[in-house]
């Protein structure tokens, strides 16, 4: 089943074309990795697919809904985690989860069940009553990911979720992401870590808003020669 289908998505900001005729598809359970320099259009593409930003032209369907006309509906079926923590630092871990449960319109019973699962899966139990702002960076991102997955969305969009995290936290967050994907959640994730490309089912490399390359990480790495994946980021250097 196709969860995301985009056809020539384009978005202008004034005279700047941030995303330029990007077409793509994602099947259920795939992890689509989005790579590219700062300003290549990764965040803009993600925000359009989340129904947060209207495309200048082109169309896309996310979870079977049209992004231009059914943005509200889409936001109920997706999870989103941004570059900046989406947690409330002055609320405890438990309060953060309860807050997001309310936002997603979950019943009290659903919230209680989900809370139990999360406390168990993430072993955040002992942090339940700590302020989110006092958690180590790795734990904070794990919690942010969990709140993005709270309402069991069909698709989750992760915009540089591992930025600034150490190697152990990155590997653990990726393990959580991989397990979610294995149970059928479609994941679209942007990153600057080239080694993280190998956690993904497929990659899309953006440059100046356009798709520069796409395919499996192994294939693209082989095509990049001795530079591997870095090839796609260094060849146009002046």
């Amino acid at each position: 089943m196709m969860n995301i289908r985009a056809d020539k998505l384009t978005r202008d900001f004034g005279s700047l074309r941030a995303v330029n005729e990007v077409s793509m598809e994602a099947r259920q359970g795939e992890i689509i990795g989005l790579l590219g320099a700062n300003g290549a259009g990764k965040s803009t593409l993600i925000r359009m697919l989340c129904g947060l930003l209207r495309p200048t032209s082109g169309t896309a369907e996310v979870a079977g809904l049209d992004i231009a006309r059914q943005g509200r509906g889409i936001r109920r079926k997706i999870g989103y985690m941004g570059q900046n923590s989406t947690l409330f630092e002055d609320l405890t871990v438990r309060e953060n989860i309860e807050f997001y449960a309310t936002v997603y319109g979950m019943t009290r019973r659903e919230t209680r069940d989900r809370m139990g699962e999360l406390m168990n899966d993430l072993r955040v139990g002992r942090y339940a009553n700590k302020l989110a702002g006092t958690l180590p960076a790795g734990w904070r991102q794990m919690l942010a990911f969990s709140t993005a997955m709270l309402h069991r969305p069909e698709i989750v969009f992760l915009d540089e979720p591992t930025s600034g995290l150490d190697a152990i936290s990155r590997r653990e967050l990726w393990n959580l992401i991989s397990l979610e994907a294995a149970t059928g959640t479609t994941v679209m994730v942007s990153t600057h870590y080239l080694d993280e490309a190998f956690y993904c089912t497929r990659l899309i490399i953006l440059e100046n808003g356009r798709v520069k390359a796409r395919g499996k990480a192994e294939t693209l790495k082989a095509a990049g020669g001795s530079d591997g994946l870095a090839h796609y980021f260094i060849q146009h250097e002046v």
């Binding site: 590219g36 320099a37 700062n38 540089e160 600034g164 600057h192 980021f233 260094i234 250097e237």
Partner: peptide
């Protein structure tokens, strides 16, 4: 101190 955190692969290489 962490000059490349959050920096894209192109800038990092440079």
């Amino acid at each position: 101190d962490e000059p490349t955190t959050g920096i894209d692969p192109f800038s990092r290489h440079l």
